[in-house]
Design a protein around this nucleic acid. Structure first.
Lengths: 195, 195
DNA sequence: TTGGACATGTAAGCCGTTACATGATTAC
DNA sequence: GTAATCATGTAACGGCTTACATGTCCAA
């Protein structure tokens, strides 16, 4: 029973997974089931953050065992929902994480990789794929507009509003930049092949 | 010795790793050692693609065993370099991959995740972190200018030039967009806290 | 009655970083 | 002489997607 049994673990977390923080953050907003969390992610932060059930459910178990959340079974009829609430300890951990500067991201953009090597590609397919990609981005822009609506439908006086707006603004700018770049790039490359 | 021994494997590749294509693409440009490949990635496509030695060396072995590249030992003195060349079979696989539309990316932006939950954050730290991030981005913009120089120092008549330029143009636009967004967001949030 | 949404979970297996191991050469 | 760069590799481990498994409720 020496001091090595004390949880010095909490100071030395080397885990890189941020799933727990995404969950804790959502639970500050409202109590949720795992299923709700997935839905919330999809229609609010889905354009810059994704989680699968395979991550969410086990993480919820872990968070409960650590006392960061409290889980209550909610029954109506035969149907069971596990509703999770953040605890003071969980909120503390979230706040501590929010203070840390974000870690550098590993970025992998397959479209750019293909374009970089496009001298080996078939010109017709290249341009067709870029146009397809442009269509995708235009559709995504529409999805953003839906998220915008969904975020603005939250109650007035929502103290999150300014942060949700700036976050979404980032996404809007990013997608618009991509659309402009694609339109110009398709033109430029098309012109290049005509000569 | 039935037909099941034939390499139908090549049609059913389920692997998601694109390391092999990055390597094959680079080897169309020039023959390289694994070390060279890492360097090339760092100072040309590093802003949208990263690979570690732990991926590169084993993938080179695999590619050689599949006949997609040929490896020759180059000795001077005690020093040994393994120089890899792409084979016709390797080039064929690269071309086939280039035809496929890029797969949807999983995007995870920790900065945006933190901003989204920033109502739980300490305002001072939040703004300090955003400013730090802005400094990072300004530095990255400078790195892009170095890559620009490095890419333009390739021999004239480089048929890759147009693709390298458009790729870099994407990066430049992206980073400029981020810088503008950060400057405005820092202002906006700062103003918000004063009231 | 059938499909879709709600709801929770597990397990396999790939992917990729990181740390480790080793050694030569070059520049200061 | 010593630090940085060149050079090649392996192994552990964690992270995450995907597929699978199971069952309810509701609407068309």
């Amino acid at each position: 029973m020496g001091p090595e049994l004390k949880s010095y673990k909490s100071n030395t977390r080397k885990s890189k997974s941020k799933t727990r923080y995404a969950i804790l953050g959502i639970l500050t907003h409202r109590e949720c089931s795992g299923y709700d969390i997935k839905k919330f992610i999809e229609n609010s932060i889905g354009f810059f953050w994704q989680e699968s059930f395979g991550q969410i459910y086990p993480t919820l178990k872990t968070l409960e065992s650590e006392g960061k959340i409290e889980t209550v079974e909610e029954n109506n009829g035969d149907k069971t929902r596990l509703v999770h609430k953040i605890t003071p300890s969980g909120r503390k951990e979230l706040k501590a994480w929010l203070k840390l500067p974000p870690e550098p991201e590993v970025i992998r953009n397959e479209m750019l990789l293909k374009l970089f090597f496009a001298n080996e590609a078939d010109p017709g397919t290249l341009i067709a794929n870029l146009k397809k990609e442009l269509e995708n981005k235009l559709q995504i822009l529409n999805q953003y507009k839906e998220i915008q609506t969904s975020l603005q439908n939250s109650p007035k006086e929502n103290p999150n509003q300014i942060f949700w707006n700036t976050t979404l603004d980032y996404g809007m700018r990013a997608i618009k930049m991509e659309i402009e770049w694609m339109q110009e790039t398709i033109q430029l490359i098309g012109k290049n092949y005509q000569n």
